[in-house]
Design a protein around this nucleic acid. Sequence first.
DNA 1: CATGCGTCCTGTGGGC
DNA 2: TGCCCACAGGACGCAT
Length: 310
Amino acid sequence: MPELPEVEVVRAGLAPAVTGALVLGATVLDERALTRHTGDGAEFEARLTGRVVLSAARRGKFLWLPLQPATDGTAATDAVVGHLGMSGQMLLRAPGAPMERHERVRIDLAHPVHGELSVVFADQRTFGSLAIDDLIPTADAAAGGQGWAEASVPAQVAHIARDPLDPAFSDGAFRRTLDRKDSAIKRVLLDQTVVSGVGNIYADESLWAARIHPETPARALSTRAVKRLLAEVRHVLEKALAEGGTSFDAQYVNVNGQAGYFAHSLNAYGRTGEPCPRCGRPIVRVSFTNRSSHFCPHCQRMPRSLPVTR
DNA sequence: CATGCGTCCTGTGGGC
DNA sequence: TGCCCACAGGACGCAT
């Protein structure tokens, strides 16, 4: 589901509620929610109880809650990692609140200022999951991600590239990677080891804005086109974030269960047959890589010839 | 090594 | 009305 803007909305909502809070207990209702965790539900609950949450962090579509080390004075060494998958939600609830539909895990917290509250992980399709994972140093020694100034990331997030809104994202490295890719640019945008946070909606929206055909081989893009694309990716992600993310239904909501407004701003995604806002010709939908791509065949043309070398 | 496909789930909406 | 298929915002493992 959720792509960077939706996940960032969740992170920003969690941060003030969980930072500094003590874990009173955890309840795993469905162990399928722990597919990223090495132990079982009871082990997860026991290992989390009594710990203090230091922050709410994010890189791309991954979230994590760094935990205070048992012996203080040192850097954090582990965290609760979460991925929302296609349908995951993180909801803030009052203590003892009734069980949510599709509730998988509940974490009960005591915050020094806000008092007791619960973080509920609900997930219809169970593609999302939580885990307790070790923090390891970042390869570039920069901060781990949004909301986490220490130079560490959960081990299972280490292979995820920085996202385009991360100050440590390297535009030059991104451009050089594209030069080596024969794959369609859309596929590369969805490859979280190249650039993280972009999913099917924002890939289509960014390519529409940059006037690039989704099946253009990545290496066929000029340096100028790559710069334009990166600028549009950032613009789309920031605008969506400012509007609270994209919600087509009640599935994609913030920690208080509220929907975002960006669906009204979509130019290509989900607008099959509707007029392109730029040229008026119909948006088409094609299927490749087992996913839908929406674009304007008039505004987004394939390059006539591919550069032999750049 | 890089690339592309199938698979893990539940639910909804449209067509017949 | 009811049934069945297609499709849904993701990521990973495995085959080629």
